[in-house]
Design a protein around this nucleic acid. Structure first.
Lengths: 338, 338
DNA sequence: TTTAGCACTCAAACAGTTCAAGTGCTAAGA
DNA sequence: TCTTAGCACTTGAACTGTTTGAGTGCTAAA
C-alpha cells in the first residue's frame, strides 16, 4: 500500500514523497513514524530510494516493476478521451497506412508523450509484383508490391538510349524468377545471380539494380510511424543536447527501434528505464501493446514517456486505444473485403 | 574597424567585448579610453549595445547589418571543406532530388547549423501526365508528372467493384481536359467542374478526388529539403521548449518556410534576426543563395544559424558551395540530356 | 585628439544563514 | 511485538551580504 502510494504520488508530483505527507494520505490512521519504519523496510528491499540522506523517497526501477506487475489498476478511460479517439479514427481512410500513422498521432496527443505504431503483418512479406512504369523520355518509376499489400515506389532517371523493350525484358526477368519469394530471398538473389542476368539487357545495370535494391529494402523494413516526436522535448528532463540527439537518431532508425520494442506479446507490456537494452533510454519507460486486426494479423502500438509517468492512466489509455483501433481496422477491412 | 572587431570577437567568443581587450587587438596602438570613446559613438549610432550598464558591447541588428553590407570579407574556403563538398557530391545520383537533399545535409554538416535546399525550377509547373496504375485487386497507384520532371504518386484502395474500364475512363478524362495546364488551374478545375464529370464514371468519386487533390497539392508545393534539423538543438540558446517546438513546426511547413526564405536574388543574402518577418526567428540569421543549374533554372540553398554566427566563414562557405553544386548539376544534366 | 586616472556599476562567484521537509533512533505505551 | 511521540540531525533551497573583476563614463592634462 505504501509503495503504491509512493509511486502514485511521485509520478503525479515529481517530488520525492516524505513520511508525513504519505501518512496523511493513507486510508487508515497511522503516524508518520510508522510510515518511516515501513519505508526503511521497502528501501531495504530495494523498492524505493532516497535522492539524498534526508530526502523523501522515490521508487527505484525495481519498485516501478513491482508496482506495474502487482499493484497498478489501469484507470478507466475518460469518456472524453474515448470520444477523441473515436472521432479521430472516424474519417474515411484510403490506405491502411493512414490509419496507422494517425494512430500514433492520436496517442501522442492524448498523452503528450511520443507514440509509435506498426501496421499489422500476418506473415513474412513475399514479392507479388514488380513494374517499371515509363513516365517520360527519361524517367522511370519502379513499383514493388508485396502480398501483404505494401507498395514501395521510386522514380529514377535513365539515359534515353534505353528502350521500352529493354525495360520490359527486365521486368519479365524479375517477375519470372522472383515472384512469390520472401523478400529476404529476393535480396539474396539480388546479391548473387540477378545482376549478371540483368546485364544481358542493360549496358549499365547499376542504376536499375540500386533502385530495385532500394525499394526492396524499403519494403522489407518494418515501417513504423512516430507521433509526437516534439513532445520528447517537453517530457525529457535532460538538458543534455547530445542525449536528445541520440534519442531522435534512435527513433529514426527502424532497426534499432525494432530492437527497443522487442517481441510483442498479447498483454500490455511495460519496460522501465534500465530494463531496456538501450542505454540512452534509462530515464524513460515504454508501454507496448499489440492490436489484432481480425485475420489480417497483429500490429503494435507503443508509448514512450518518462520513467516517472502515471502508469495507471497510461496503461488504461493504451488498453482502450488498442481496442478502438482493432475495431476500426476490422471495419476498414470489412469495407474492402466485401 | 572597431565595429568589425567587435562583430568578429563576439561571434567567435559569445561574450560581450570590452574596451581593453579590444584595444589590445587592434592593429595600431590606441588606449582603451580611446576605444571607449569610439564605442560610445557607435552606440549613439545604434550599431552596438550593452547588455547592462557596465558591460562590454555586443553588435545590434543594425550593427550586424552594417557589418554584413560593408565590412565583411568572405573567408576563403578551406581546401579540406572543398574536398568534403566535392566528394559528397561525387556519387552517382539517379534523381535530381537526391542531389538537392544531399546538399542540405552537406551544408549542415559543414556548419553545424540547419540548412535548406530547394531544387531548381525554371517556370510554373504544368501537368504533363496522369495515370492510375492498378496494383492488384484493390490497390491503385495514382501517378502525376509535371513538365518540370516532378513526379508525385500515392497508392489508395478501392472497392473491387470498380473496373479497369472505369479507371481508364477517368484517366482519359483528366488527360484530355487538363494536360498542359498550370497546376493551380488544375486545382481550380478540381474544385469546380471536374467532380461532376468524374461522377459519370464512378459511383463514389470522393476517394479518387481526394487522392488526385493530394498528389496535385504535393506537386504544386515547392518541395524543399532540410538538413541538420537536430543541430538546432545545439546552436539555439533558447531553453524554451515551446519556442523550439514552434521552430520545428515552422520548418515542416513549406508554405511558411517559403515566406521566410523570401524572394531569391543572385547575390548572397543575409537576413538578420528581427529583419525576418517571423517573430520566433528573432535570435537567428538566415543566409540565402541561389544556384544556377545551366538552363534548367535556379534553385535556392539557405543556412539558418544563430544571429551571432561567424558571418565571414559562413558566407564564404555558402558561396563556395553554391558554385560546386551548380557545377555538379550541370554535369548531371549533361549526362542525361545527351 | 588622445590618454591617464578615477569613481562608479554590474554580474558572478562565494560564504553564511535560515527554513522547511525530511530522516533515523530511542524509549514509552498498547 | 507493534505503534508512536519526541528529538537530534541532515539536506537542499532560498536568501542575504561580500568580494572581485571586468567593464563603464567623465574629467582634466598632455
Amino acid at each position: 500500500m505504501i509503495l503504491k502510494a509512493i509511486v502514485r504520488d511521485y509520478t503525479s508530483s515529481g517530488v520525492p514523497v516524505g513520511s508525513k505527507a504519505l501518512a496523511a494520505q493513507l486510508p487508515m490512521h497511522v503516524s508518520s513514524a510508522t510510515v518511516r519504519n515501513e519505508m526503511a523496510a521497502l528501501e531495504e528491499l530495494g523498492l524505493i530510494a532516497k535522492t539524498h540522506s534526508s530526502s523523501g523517497r522515490i521508487p527505484s526501477v525495481k519498485g516501478y516493476r513491482y508496482y506495474v506487475d502487482h499493484l497498478v489498476q489501469p484507470d478507466p478511460i475518460k469518456a472524453n478521451d474515448i470520444d477523441i479517439i473515436k472521432s479521430s479514427l472516424e474519417g474515411q481512410f484510403l490506405k491502411i497506412d493512414e490509419i496507422i500513422e494517425t494512430s500514433a498521432k492520436i496517442l501522442s496527443n492524448l498523452t503528450s508523450y511520443t507514440a509509435f505504431s506498426l501496421k499489422p503483418e500476418h506473415k513474412q512479406s513475399r514479392l507479388s509484383g514488380f513494374r517499371l512504369v515509363p513516365l517520360g523520355k527519361r524517367q522511370v518509376m519502379a513499383v514493388l508490391v508485396t502480398d501483404n499489400g505494401d507498395v514501395e515506389s521510386q522514380t529514377f532517371n535513365i539515359t534515353p538510349k534505353i528502350t521500352g523493350d529493354q525495360l520490359e525484358a527486365v521486368v519479365r526477368l524479375i517477375n519470372d524468377q522472383l515472384i512469390g519469394k520472401p523478400l529476404d530471398e529476393v535480396l539474396e538473389a539480388l546479391k548473387s545471380d540477378i545482376p549478371m542476368q540483368v546485364a544481358n539487357y542493360l549496358q549499365q545495370p547499376e542504376g536499375f539494380l540500386k533502385v530495385f535494391g532500394d525499394v526492396l529494402t524499403q519494403a522489407a523494413q518494418e515501417r513504423f510511424y512516430v507521433g509526437g516526436r516534439l513532445n520528447l522535448l517537453s517530457f525529457s528532463d535532460s538538458n543534455d543536447v547530445d542525449e536528445l540527439k541520440s534519442l531522435y537518431t534512435l527513433m529514426d532508425h527502424s532497426d534499432d527501434m525494432a530492437d527497443v520494442l522487442g517481441k510483442p506479446s498479447d498483454r500490455i507490456q511495460v519496460k522501465i528505464g534500465s530494463e531496456m537494452t538501450n542505454d540512452i533510454l534509462k530515464d524513460y519507460s515504454l508501454i507496448t501493446a499489440t492490436y489484432e486486426a481480425g485475420d489480417h494479423g497483429k500490429g503494435v502500438i507503443a508509448l514512450l514517456g518518462p520513467t516517472r509517468m502515471p502508469y495507471s492512466r497510461m496503461i488504461g489509455l493504451v488498453g482502450a486505444f488498442r481496442q478502438e483501433l482493432a475495431q476500426r481496422l476490422i471495419d476498414y477491412y470489412r469495407y474492402f473485403d466485401q
